[in-house]
């Protein structure tokens, strides 16, 4: 039987796993860009963001257990990341739309956590500075692409629409995360609406969840591309059981 103390510890573990998996998976997706970015400056920027996220993931996963066991030896049904971060890179507009939606959320989340006195406050205080940069980067590119050429406008529009259905999940309550999800959601909508408006883009009107009940990724229900991503990520580690690197 679990005591209140261990229940609390389990809740923190669940929260750290959810946020750690978000950061781990998005970092991996950004790592896929290396060598293919549209300009050299973006090679540096995307790698920089990927590294920040990987750093966050390593700290969060280490709160739960061994970072490598958690990253390399779990199967997809055990991952707790939101489905948004596992979506394939697509074109640069898709990558930017994913960054805009996610970093706006992460910025609000870490802002709230940093302001509190919970066990993740210290980590959040450091991460919120990194995430502010990620958010600014995504915002600047949303403006350039949305309010750039007719082609870039159309691509950015398509990307914002395509990823919209994965944004509702960001605001489902997560066990152990002591934040006001409803307040975050309205702040998120306000911020994204503002950026899209300045980028001459319309806020998508479709549903903000897929056919799965909201919170699917947090419960280990993922989209098809995720399994293939994990196969690539985990293959080498799994091929050498017990090895150190």
């Amino acid at each position: 039987m679990s005591t209140p103390d261990t229940r609390e510890a389990t809740a923190i573990t669940a929260a750290a796993l959810a946020l750690g998996d978000d950061a781990l998976v998005l970092s991996h997706r950004l790592g896929e860009w290396a060598g293919s970015a549209p300009v050299l400056e973006e090679e540096v920027a995307l790698a920089n963001i990927a590294l920040d996220l990987l750093g966050q993931a390593r700290i969060l996963l280490s709160l739960v257990g061994d970072e490598d066991e958690l990253a390399y030896l779990r199967e997809e049904r055990s991952f707790r990341n939101v489905q948004l971060v596992e979506q394939p890179n697509g074109d640069f507009a898709h990558t930017i739309a994913r960054q805009l939606y996610f970093s706006t959320y992460q910025h609000l989340l870490y802002g709230q956590l940093a302001a509190g006195d919970g066990p993740l406050a210290g980590l959040a205080a450091k991460a919120v500075k990194e995430v502010a940069y990620h958010r600014d980067h995504a915002e600047q590119w949303t403006l350039r692409l949305g309010d750039g050429t007719p082609e870039s406008h159309e691509r950015m529009h398509q990307a914002c629409e395509a990823l919209w259905r994965y944004t509702g999940e960001l605001f489902q309550p997560v066990e152990g995360l002591d934040v006001d999800h409803a307040a975050m959601e309205s702040a998120w909508l306000e911020s994204v609406t503002d950026v899209l408006g300045r980028a001459t883009l319309t806020v998508p009107s479709g549903p903000r969840t897929g056919a799965w009940r909201a919170g699917a990724g947090r419960q280990g229900l993922h989209t098809e591309p995720f399994g293939r991503m994990l196969a690539e990520m985990q293959h080498l580690h799994r091929s050498h059981p017990g090895a150190t690197w």
């Binding site: 781990l24 991996h28 790592g31 896929e32 290396a34 060598g35 050299l40 400056e41 090679e43 540096v44 790698a47 920089n48 990927a50 590294l51 990987l54 750093g55 993931a57 390593r58 996963l61 970072e67 490598d68 990253a71 390399y72 690539e232 990520m233 293959h235 080498l236 580690h237 050498h240 090895a243 150190t244 690197w245």
Partner: peptide, 26 residues
């Protein structure tokens, strides 16, 4: 090898290195 690096530490080192190379190019 970034997407297949066998540990998170090695993955971070490799990402940082490839990022540095882009910087050197610049």
């Amino acid at each position: 090898w970034i997407t297949r690096a066998p540990s998170l530490r090695r993955k971070a080192i490799l990402m940082a290195k490839v990022q540095d190379e882009a910087g050197h190019g610049l």
